[in-house]
Design a protein around this nucleic acid. Structure first.
Length: 600
DNA sequence: GCCGTTTTCGGCCCGACTGTTTTCAGTCG
C-alpha cells in the first residue's frame, strides 16, 4: 500500500468523523496524520515494520495502530464501521465548493439528499431552501459549483500557472501604491501542480489594487471582493486569491500565505510555546507588542530559526532540520553547468538543428549539451550506423563552433521489454553519454518492470536512467516498479538517475529525489528538450530537486566534466577508460575534451 | 486523537468574507 493510499483513507476518516459530528479535534488529528503520511519521503510500510510510526509528529498510539492495520489489511475496522453509516455519494458532496460538513449533514439528515444529482435537483426545485441558513443565492452558487465540479480537469501544471502568475504580478506592480507584489502559495513552493494562485500585495491604499485585480481582462467572474481579500475565477478556470496587507506586515503575510498549511501550523505551534503569536499581520509577544514582520526572515529569526526556502516548507522535517542547523544548501539553477538530455532533428520528434540548439544553449550559459537522440525502436530512431554518422556530425559541428557550448555525442537508448538495450554495446561505448529509458510496455507487472530496468542499469554502458518512473503528470501514472531497488542498484553500479525537467514529467518526482538523496545515488538534471526553446525548462528540474532537498554536490551536471567518469565508483571509470581506448583506436572523430579529472 | 520549556489534563491556528440572519454560522485558506 502506497503512502498516498494510506493518506487518502486517513483523510476520508476525517471527513467521516466530521459528517457524523464527532469531536472536531479528532477530525483534525486524522487530517494532520494524513498530511504527514502524504509528505513522507519513505514508504510508510517501513515505519510500520520498524515500529517507528509514533516518532512522526501528529501520530500517536491510536493512529499508528490504525495505519498498521491499514498497511496489513488495506483497511481498518473503525473506518469500515463509519463508512457503512455514510453513503459514498454523501462523502462526495464535500467536494462541491462552498458546501462544507455542516451543509452536507443538514441536507443529508434533513432532506435525505444522498448524492450530487439529488443535491442538484433540490437546488433547482427550491426544496433546498428548507435546510437551515439556505437562501436563493446559496442555491444558485451551489448549482454553479456543481457544474464546475463536473467540468473540472484537475490541477494546472506549474509552468502554466507560473506564467499566469507572472502576468498578474507584473500588472499589479504597475498599480500606484502597490509597494510590493509577490505570488505565494503553491506556486512559490514550486509544487508540480497548482490548484489556485495566491497573490499578495503590500499597500496602504488597497482600493486601486482591488479594482485593477477584479477588472483584469482574464477574469471570468468575481468570487468575492473586500478591502483586504478578493477572489476571482479566470477564464482558464483557475481561481486567484488576492490579499492586501500593510507594508509593515508584508513579510509575515508572505510567509503565512506561502504555506504549506502543515509548515505554518508547525511553526505557529513552535512560536506559541515560546510565548510568541504568529499571524499574517506580524509576530507579537504575549502583550500584543509587535516584534517584527516586515520581512519574511523576521518571522524565522524571532522564533530562533534560519530562513527556510519555500520549496521545502511542507512540514516534513524542515523545521527540525533548521533547528539542528542541518538545512540543506539547496541546489540553484546557476549551479547546473550543462544539459545531459537533448534531442535534435536527427531523430523522430526533435525539431531543432544542432546549431540552433547550440545557439540557444550558449544564450542560456550552458557549458555543454549532450545530444541524445532516440534509438532504432522509436519511429525514425537511429540504428547503429545512423548513430555513428550522427555522432560524427555532432563532433564536426562542435569543432566548427569551438566547443561553446561543448556538444557531446550521446543517445537515448530504449530499454527493451526484456531489459536489453536497443543498440549494440560497441556503439554505445563509443559515445560520450548514454541515457537509457523505458518507452514501451508500460503495463508490465512490477517485478518484470523492475527486473527490466535493473538489467539495463547492470549493462555497464549506461550513464543515466532517463525519466525513471515514466509518469506524465495528470495523464499517465508511473509504471509499476520498485523504486527503492532501482535506487539501490543505481547506487551500487554507479549509474545516475535523471531528474527530467519537462514540466509534464518532473521525473524523478520531488519525493523520489529525497529518497535518492538519502541513498546517496548520483543525480542528473536534464531538460529532455525536443526543441531549442525547451532548454530553458531546466529550471523546473532544479525546483523539483530543491523540493527533494537536493544539494549541488548530489548532481553530476554541476561539475565541469560530468561525462568523464568520476571517482564515484570503479564501474563508471572502467567503462569510460574503455571508451577512451576505443577513441584512441578509432582516431579522428573522438571527442577532444575530457583531459582533466573531475574537480569536486 | 495528539501532545507537553504552563507535561498526563486540558488545550488544540485563526482571520476574512458571504449569506443568512438581525448577531452570526459556515466555509475557506
Amino acid at each position: 500500500m502506497e503512502n498516498t493510499d494510506v493518506a487518502r483513507i486517513l483523510f476520508e476518516m476525517g471527513d467521516l468523523l466530521e459528517l457524523l459530528d464527532e469531536n472536531q479535534f479528532k477530525v483534525r488529528a486524522y487530517r494532520q496524520a494524513a498530511q504527514v503520511i502524504d509528505t513522507l519521503p519513505t514508504p510508510v510500510s517501513e515505519l510500520v515494520r520498524d515500529g517507528t510510526l509514533t516518532a512522526l509528529p501528529g501520530i500517536g498510539e491510536g493512529i499508528a495502530g490504525r495505519i498498521a492495520e491499514l498497511v496489513e489489511h488495506g483497511t481498518f475496522e473503525e473506518h469500515d464501521r463509519l463508512a457503512a453509516r455514510v453513503p459514498p455519494g454523501v462523502l462526495e458532496l464535500l467536494e462541491i465548493e462552498g458546501v462544507g460538513p455542516k451543509t452536507v449533514s443538514s441536507v443529508w439528515m434533513g432532506l435525505g439528499i444522498r448524492d450530487i444529482d439529488a443535491l442538484e435537483v433540490a437546488c433547482r426545485s427550491g426544496r433546498i431552501l428548507e435546510a437551515p441558513r439556505m437562501g436563493e443565492l446559496r442555491a444558485r452558487a451551489i448549482l454553479q459549483a456543481i457544474a464546475r465540479h463536473r467540468a473540472r480537469k484537475g490541477r494546472m501544471l506549474l509552468h502554466r500557472a507560473l506564467w499566469i502568475a507572472d502576468e498578474i504580478v507584473a500588472r499589479l506592480r504597475e498599480v500606484h501604491g502597490a509597494l510590493r507584489v509577490e505570488a505565494c502559495g503553491s506556486v512559490r513552493r514550486r509544487l508540480e501542480t497548482v490548484g489556485d494562485l495566491d497573490v499578495l500585495v503590500g499597500s496602504k491604499d488597497p482600493g486601486p489594487v482591488t479594482r485593477t485585480f477584479v477588472g483584469m481582462p482574464e477574469v471570468a467572474s468575481v468570487v468575492s471582493e473586500g478591502p483586504t481579500k478578493s477572489s476571482v475565477r479566470l477564464k482558464v478556470g483557475l481561481q486567484v486569491d488576492l490579499r492586501i496587507v500593510a507594508p509593515e506586515t508584508f513579510g509575515a503575510a508572505l510567509h503565512y500565505f506561502t504555506g504549506s498549511k502543515a509548515h505554518n501550523i508547525a511553526l505557529r505551534t513552535r512560536a506559541l510555546r515560546r510565548g510568541i503569536k504568529l499571524s499574517e499581520y506580524g509576530v507579537f509577544d504575549r502583550e500584543g507588542r509587535r516584534l517584527g514582520g516586515a520581512e519574511e526572515k523576521d518571522v524565522f529569526e524571532i522564533v530562533g530559526l534560519p530562513w527556510i526556502p519555500p520549496e521545502i516548507r511542507e512540514g516534513s522535517g524542515e523545521i527540525e532540520a533548521a533547528e539542528a542547523g542541518k538545512l540543506p544548501r539547496l541546489i540553484e539553477e546557476k549551479d547546473v553547468l550543462g544539459d545531459m538530455h537533448v534531442h535534435s532533428d536527427a531523430s523522430s520528434d526533435g525539431q531543432s538543428s544542432l546549431d540552433e540548439l547550440a545557439d540557444e544553449g550558449k544564450k542560456l550559459g550552458r557549458r555543454y549539451l549532450a545530444i541524445t537522440d532516440h534509438s532504432r525502436s522509436r519511429p525514425l530512431g537511429l540504428d547503429a550506423d545512423a548513430l555513428r554518422a550522427h555522432a560524427r556530425q555532432v563532433a564536426s559541428v562542435d569543432r566548427k563552433r569551438g566547443g561553446r557550448p561543448k556538444l557531446l555525442r550521446g543517445v537515448e537508448v530504449d530499454i527493451l521489454p526484456d531489459g536489453s538495450l536497443d543498440l549494440p554495446r560497441d556503439v554505445l561505448t563509443e559515445l560520450d553519454w548514454v541515457v537509457a529509458s523505458v518507452h514501451s510496455h508500460f503495463t508490465d507487472p512490477e517485478e518484470r518492470m523492475t527486473d527490466r530496468i535493473v538489467r539495463a542499469l547492470e549493462s555497464g554502458v549506461v550513464d543515466v536512467l532517463g525519466h525513471p518512473s515514466g509518469r506524465l503528470i495528470g495523464r499517465r501514472d508511473p509504471y509499476a516498479f520498485d523504486l527503492q531497488r532501482v535506487i539501490d542498484v543505481a547506487k551500487k553500479r554507479g549509474v545516475a538517475l535523471e531528474i527530467n525537467a519537462q514540466p509534464e514529467r518532473l521525473d524523478l518526482s520531488d519525493k523520489a529525489c529525497r529518497l535518492a538523496r538519502d541513498a546517496g545515488v548520483a543525480l542528473v538534471i536534464s531538460s529532455d528538450s525536443h526543441a531549442a526553446n525547451h532548454l530553458a525548462n531546466l529550471r523546473f528540474g532544479v525546483w523539483a530537486a530543491r523540493r527533494g532537498w537536493i544539494e549541488a554536490g548530489d548532481v553530476l551536471n554541476t561539475r565541469p566534466w560530468p561525462w568523464d567518469g568520476g571517482e564515484r565508483n570503479s564501474e563508471r571509470r572502467r567503462i569510460h577508460s574503455e571508451k577512451r581506448e576505443a577513441r584512441a583506436r578509432g582516431g579522428p572523430g573522438g571527442t577532444e575534451g575530457s583531459p582533466r579529472r573531475n574537480e569536486r
